[in-house]
Amino acid sequence: MQDNQLRLLMFLQDLLMLKKEMEDFQVVEKYEEMGFDLEKKEKIEEAIREVTGQLDAELHHRFQMIANKYDRPLAPVKNGICYGCFVSAPTGSELITQRKDVIEFCNHCGRILYQPGTL
């Protein structure tokens, strides 16, 4: 359950990044110059709603709170370090012990943590 929620959060962050790109006139112009058709770029909102609808409400609320503060509410943990703020994750962190069924937050910056390569 939590594992699935974490993947949904990751997917949501990817979609929000794509939305941000689609709102950047210069980036869209670059894509169009390359030959890409972005005629339906407003459909990104629909995709975001779809994913948000599957998220636990409390978790989504927390995600939004973090998103208000940082561009990227999720951060990878590598070698026990949060790559959002570059501070070590707490000793005994479930992420350090490789458990995949918990959602953890960085004690320092509050970002949602994930381990790349162990989705």
């Binding site: 962050q13 990817d14 390359m34 030959g35 339906k40």
Partner: peptide, 25 residues
């Protein structure tokens, strides 16, 4: 989802599906 915004098939036989994603580092 990216394809839904507009196909990445740029014509003349080419397609360049692309995206940014947290699943790659």
């Amino acid at each position: 989802k990216r394809e839904n915004l507009g196909s990445t098939g740029i014509g003349k036989g080419f397609a360049i599906p692309h995206c940014r994603s947290l699943v790659v580092d």
